[in-house]
Write a protein that binds this DNA or RNA. Structure first.
Lengths: 229, 229
DNA sequence: CGTGCGCTTGACTTTTTTCAATAAAGGTGG
DNA sequence: CCACCTTTATTGAAAAAAGTCAAGCGCACG
């Protein structure tokens, strides 16, 4: 597919004039990653960043003994790996394809040149990084100030809201990965889902799906006004 | 003092041409906050950001029951509160002066105009936000993958390194605030400092000072290769 | 048709928090 | 300069939350 056309659908480049899209299209490199493949590792030098055109990527940290904390899961249209482009340092985390994924790779130097001549791209990128800081802020708040049931409740509300307030939530990821997003382990998540089911707050099958039965209870859990028995 | 001169010392504006410094100086507004005063609250609209010229600011989140997680402590030359400038949304956290503090306040619209005409400022700001993302990444890693002794050890190493590798570390903040940075409570921190002292890894008096006695042990704790008895 | 991975559950351990009490330090006003 | 009061730090005992280890189930995939 035509790269310029793909680029024109990326939020980061919305409103960019066609001539610059052409420039970008010339410098962008198509890449493909098989499910399970590592895109970059913590400590790798960051010579550019990726934009996802299809598939899904998880960005995560690991502990010496193998536990994993997912920082975000990125899908179509989202850029990732930009931090070392602007700090000039190395990747602070790992990235791995959790589905077969196509990306456009933007080499650092070319992209920096574009930014120098095209302020709207700089502003878009500032917005992207700021949104990400905001999300990290929430994640830190969750990890530090809430217990796992509260984090789970907040996450379910977030997914529900993103899908127009539906009660039928498609997790889209495995429960093991959900545990890693919530900063816990599968056993703990499993137990808490069981408790919430027992209290008729949710229904949960094993098919990456959760149904909210008592939204008020979920909201109270997320707000810390309620606890599970 | 002359605002343009103050601005010329701010890393964010290094290398900016004098004419732009003059422009900035005209739009910047001097502000003063007394120790304990709130600079902004979570949810406030972000009509601009601050740059610290003297003093110290803590940026933090709170839980319903009053526990507090410090996101960062900012001092001279550092900007804070930029996120809503670029997201167009509200402040995602609180900011409070923990010492008498002077800032330069940069109104959003004027600053955005500067960025549109001066790419070097945009690049500086991208660098600032990227560094912050990197630090948040570490904080998330700490909170999720390490226990409190490991976090404390990593923090001590960070402070030591920042001060040219000295063994005599000046915390500069109260132990209550250190606990809040580490994502725990004063009691837990106190106990862990006591255990580390008992094992002759550190010496800790109550005067915002810690001395590293066994650096290897600290490094092993930070790397998760060792645990306290 | 088995092998493996994801998920669940139970029993147990570890870590951290909570609650309470005390001690020490620092600032304020007389 | 001292008494007083608030804040900060420490310690113990008990409770709660989450993690570890181990076992078992079921479904998907080769």
């Amino acid at each position: 597919m035509d790269i310029a056309k793909q680029l024109s659908h990326i939020p980061l480049f919305q409103g960019l004039e066609p001539q610059y899209l052409e420039t970008l299209a010339r410098i962008a490199v198509k890449k493909f990653f098989k499910r399970g493949e590592t895109v970059f590792a913590e400590g790798d030098p960051g010579i550019g960043f990726h934009i996802i055109t299809s598939g899904r990527i998880k960005v995560y940290k690991t502990s010496p003994d193998g536990k994993e904390q997912i920082l975000h899961i990125m899908s179509q249209g989202e850029p990732f790996g930009e931090v070392p482009v602007f700090t000039g340092q190395r990747f602070p985390a790992y990235a791995e394809a959790i589905a077969d994924t196509n990306t456009l790779f933007m080499p650092r130097d070319d992209f920096m040149n574009l930014i120098r001549t095209e302020p709207s791209v700089a502003l878009s990128m500032l917005s992207v990084l700021s949104m990400r800081l905001k999300r990290f802020t929430s994640l830190i708040e969750d990890l530090s100030l809430r217990e796992v049931p509260g984090r789970l409740a907040a996450y379910l509300l977030y997914l529900s809201e993103r899908d127009q307030g539906t009660d039928d939530i498609n997790l889209e990821i495995s429960k093991t990965q959900l545990a890693s997003i919530l900063g816990t382990i599968p056993e703990t998540l499993s137990r808490i889902l069981a408790r919430m089911t027992r209290e008729a707050i949710i229904e949960s099958d094993d098919k990456r799906h959760v149904r909210i039965c008592d939204r008020t209870a979920i909201e109270e859990l997320a707000a810390g006004e309620r606890r599970l028995a």
